[in-house]
Design a protein around this nucleic acid. Sequence first.
DNA 1: TCACAAAATGACGCGCAATTCATTTTTTGA
DNA 2: TCAAAAAATGAATTGCGCGTCATTTTGTGA
Lengths: 206, 206
Amino acid sequence: MTDKKLSRREREKCRQRKEMIAAALSLFSEKGYHNVSMQEIAETAEFAIGTLYKFFQNKEDLYKALVMEQSERFEVAFEAAIAGPADEIEKLRNFVRIRRDMCRDNLPFIRLFLAESKGASFNLKAGLDADLRKKIDAFMEKLAHIFESGMENGRFQKIADPYSLAIALDSVIDAFILLWVESPERHPFPEDPDVILNIFFKGLLN
Amino acid sequence: MTDKKLSRREREKCRQRKEMIAAALSLFSEKGYHNVSMQEIAETAEFAIGTLYKFFQNKEDLYKALVMEQSERFEVAFEAAIAGPADEIEKLRNFVRIRRDMCRDNLPFIRLFLAESKGASFNLKAGLDADLRKKIDAFMEKLAHIFESGMENGRFQKIADPYSLAIALDSVIDAFILLWVESPERHPFPEDPDVILNIFFKGLLN
DNA sequence: TCACAAAATGACGCGCAATTCATTTTTTGA
DNA sequence: TCAAAAAATGAATTGCGCGTCATTTTGTGA
């Protein structure tokens, strides 16, 4: 969806589109969907407003495209993170690490995404796009699978059902990210993934 | 802030105000702040628009009042839940139970609140009101204290720092609530609080 | 019953922001 | 070099929704 094997003009279009999305991302993440005008996006991206409408049918379309494209990148990175190691524990560690890295490198989008995927399934009329929701659900299943296979081969105790554990891990990571986004100095995101994972690995009782 | 020792007229005002807030809550939680017009709220509450503006300076004022009043109720209930039992484990169980009960009885507000407190610190210009944020933070400290004192008296293992545990527990409960809100049949909120708490109580490893 | 005050009403003014499209500018290739 | 096609432009159109306020309705007490 990016370059190679495209005419000069097509490459140029791609570049312009990226600049528009970048401008929109920066503005949306800072001020929120409803507090950003198309005019503003156009100006930030240094295009005329009409040009914006050549690339995107309307404001919502631009927004959806933006969320979709970025999510795709995250999705891919997360899949890779848990596909790498064979060992369940290492898969989880890797997942936590990659989440941290992706967040560090994509602050603006993280803000937007947390808002989207957590509470505000009602920020936009339709909420999360069905496509995206399906992908997130599918990934959750994969995460659940890690816990499941860990239980089957005796590495993990059966302390809760695998899907619940997946949801729990995901939400705890999000919570840490949120803390970190809100005040990076006071709540740095832990370097060592086990700071988070020990909440699951070790038991409070006994 | 409610009744008793008020003139007939004052009681009437109070009732009207409540009806307006109820209408606004129902609409906001269903369609989101920006997709609800004052006209719509007025019609739903069966008042004229002008009357709405007699009670609330403007739309944001109405919204803030709504969030504030409802949060207050939740706040009080949660405080009571952890103040009751002396035993740390029972405090946590009680907290989980009360969260479940409050959610069951206040679905519309839950949707709104999760959207507010989680992602959408940017849904509204200013995000969460500073007052409210302070209250939430203060409550988190209290939750952290439960873990802390449990560690001191040897009931809990020191598997993570108390504040992190508080954040983690809170976010996991939220995640379960979110699942339940989205599809109550497929993901009923667990009756037994230990279904959730065991994720923390018991260790995955060993 | 009537005059006056308090409250409720909702049509309207106004500004803002999403789109449109007639015009201008740039690119292409003959 | 020039004309036709493609792309970019931004002023104008449009619609919406907040908040006002002149008018109507309701309540009160003499």
